[in-house]
Write a protein that binds this DNA or RNA. Structure first.
Lengths: 223, 223
DNA sequence: TAGATTGTTAATCGATTAACAATC
DNA sequence: TAGATTGTTAATCGATTAACAATC
């Protein structure tokens, strides 16, 4: 019965990393307390929403005072599961795999890179993020000998599903998927997609009007 | 008054790239029509939601028949603004910059890479995604001579805001931001964040329960 | 025509905003 | 105590689901 039993809505959970980020920054700047109003203006939310969000788990605020930054940060850290360490492997040692492997923040938050795998002979044996790239053939044995929590998938679309099948059959419970496709996984396996193309397209959607207004439009004069 | 004037809710817009992806795949497989029920089971949505979504812009369906795949795909392509070409530059020629530069799908959908910029002398002059890396000092002139729609920002957190200030002052209207921070930009400039850490943390949130249940728990026996 | 499937309305659900009493 | 600010309730808004008449 330790930790938070109240269930937090997924909408709120998706905002928690952002809260965590801002609270971490505040803490680094030695700011000890913050009100919902101040945090709201910082993060671009409403004070009301923040109070609702933070109240959906414990009561970390204090009337007349606000929220204690480090206390609230720790609470959110716990909720996000960041009080544990997670072992991860990267599959696909291309540019994206490299980028993630060198992402310092992951290690700092307890996501420990244990292995990198690829099938390209040119990549195998090279060092990526302090780890030597192994061939995919060694994956099964590696996973059975090292408890791996997360697989970071950075492979082409064509092989994504097949590799997802493999890693889940080896018992990996979480996939952070950079391959541009949806994955079908057994029940119980958690997948988080990072779909760069999707993000780009919501941007082009918003740029479209600007694009239209700046294009040559010879019919404008007669109405 | 050409094109879609009905406003589509942002919730729906965020789903459109996924529709677009699935419809593209269907088209590649020579499938001409699809019902909301079939598409729902494919995409993991409800048929009802799909009909609501697709009906928030034009009436691309036909009773008793379903939706014409290529017609619907074209409509969504238009709404997402993908009937235009967009020029883009990448700032930051690190691993992430490389990864994006080599992302074939961007070019295929009309996002054309025009330049890559960095400050690291070792990177300047190298070729990234068929483009020669230039020094940031050349950015202003480059942007003034090439109409650039989108800046893809792949720089460290520390310099993200400063570079965003620069590119917006040069007139760039859209930023796809891979730097792990929120950007303050002038009104009218559109920013889409791809925050990898945030994605990872919503994954650890979901893995937490599993982690708890598998950790050694010597107190379990006495209750 | 009969069957299928949309478009659309109504019902439900959930999230955000507003307001204020509780309380530090 | 007086002022500030939360926790929490109520009101509003928006999104999803359900249901079915319209129609191809």
């Amino acid at each position: 019965m330790h930790r938070f039993s109240k269930k937090v809505s997924m909408t709120v959970v998706k905002r928690l990393p952002k809260y965590y980020q801002y609270l971490t920054d505040l803490q680094l700047n030695d700011i000890e307390k913050i009100s919902s109003r101040e945090l709201a203006s910082l993060m671009g939310l409403t004070a009301s929403q923040i109070r609702q969000d933070l109240n959906s788990f414990g009561g970390y605020g204090q009337q007349g005072y606000g929220y204690n930054v480090s206390e609230l940060r720790n609470a959110i850290k716990d909720i996000l599961g960041l009080d544990y360490e997670y072992s991860c492997i990267i599959i696909g040692a291309g540019n994206m795999g490299h980028a993630i492997a060198n992402y310092e923040r992951f290690r700092r938050e307890g996501i420990i890179l244990k292995g990198v795998f690829d099938v390209d002979p040119l990549r195998i044996g090279t060092v990526v993020g302090s780890v030597v790239v192994k061939h995919m053939d060694e994956l099964e044995e590696f996973v059975s000998q090292n408890e791996i929590d997360v697989c970071i998938l950075c492979v082409p679309r064509e092989v994504g599903q097949q590799i997802a099948n493999q890693v889940t059959s080896f018992g990996i419970q979480g996939i952070l998927n950079f391959s541009p496709m949806d994955l079908e996984v057994p029940k119980g396996v958690e997948v988080e997609n990072v779909n760069i193309t999707d993000s780009l397209f919501t941007l082009t959607y918003r740029l479209k009007d600007y694009k239209i207004s700046t294009e040559d439009n010879p019919e404008t004069s007669d109405d």
